[in-house]
């Protein structure tokens, strides 16, 4: 049993945690993106989808807790490892060279922390709606029921170019984070080898690019008027 505790104590164990939670977070992002893209199918599609998600409160909260747990573990592992990394080099080099480490790999903590800050804002913005309480009053009819008009909220939200800009920027950072993270997690979990390496590396970049396009498509489309009210 004490061997299992090593998952939380050892460097490699915590990397497994990062990898596993990272995978879950990536899965969430991809599904979330697909969900968001329903905005292009019109208000009903999106609103229906949103309603479906919230149909069962227990499920919703279980999911939210799970997600929170993943983020918490990811964050805890990232920060505890990063603190040790700092300590491992108390004196820095006067002249510091980089041979091949990618920009993304060197800024993981930074990009991660910004993304999490964004996520907090984002939840306050669209989920809790504390930033814009009037979103709360946006209602619409869906299959004969009154539901929250997510479509209207999103369009209203992204009509503000500042907010849209911030979203796009954050999504960009998220994708930088993922461009390293997604291949990195295969390395951390020991799945990488000579044959799979190029696939995973390219796959990570490809997936990040797709996520960026998919996520940014929403605010951009609102801004340019592709999505709005007829």
């Amino acid at each position: 049993m004490d061997k299992l505790l090593l998952i939380f104590q050892s460097s490699l164990g915590r990397k497994f945690i990062m990898g596993i939670t990272g995978t879950a977070l990536v899965a969430f992002i991809v599904i979330h993106m697909i969900g968001n893209l329903q905005i292009f199918l019109g208000p009903d599609a999106l609103n229906g989808y949103a309603k479906l998600l919230k149909a069962k409160a227990e499920l919703l909260w279980a999911f939210r807790l799970g997600l929170l747990g993943m983020i918490g573990l990811h964050l805890w592992a990232a920060i505890s490892l990063a603190i040790e990394n700092r300590k491992a080099r108390p004196k820095r080099y006067d002249k510091e060279g980089t041979i091949q480490a990618s920009y993304a790999s060197r800024t993981m903590v930074m990009s991660g922390l910004i993304v999490i800050s964004f996520a907090i804002f984002h939840i306050l913005h669209f989920t809790a709606q504390v930033t814009h309480p009037k979103y709360h009053e946006m209602k619409t009819m869906y299959k004969g029921e009154e539901v929250h008009d997510v479509y209207q909220m999103v369009v209203a939200g992204f009509s503000n170019p500042w907010i849209s800009g911030f979203y796009i920027l954050s999504v960009g950072l998220l994708c930088i984070h993922m461009s390293h993270g997604v291949s990195s997690m295969f390395q951390s979990l020991g799945i990488m080898n000579r044959n799979t390496e190029p696939v995973f590396k390219l796959g990570a970049k490809g997936l990040s690019a797709v996520v960026f396009l998919g996520m940014a498509a929403v605010p951009v489309s609102v801004l340019v008027g592709l999505v709005g009210f007829e």
Binding site: S11, E84, I99, S184, F186, Q187, S188, L189, G190, I191
Partner: peptide, 29 residues
Amino acid sequence: GNCTNQYECEAACPKQISVQHIARMNRDY
């Protein structure tokens, strides 16, 4: 410190040991 898969090590290694061995150790672990 802990590895964040930056792969600088393999580039500086005089024997060009591949980071694939890190993946292997992760798997073994």
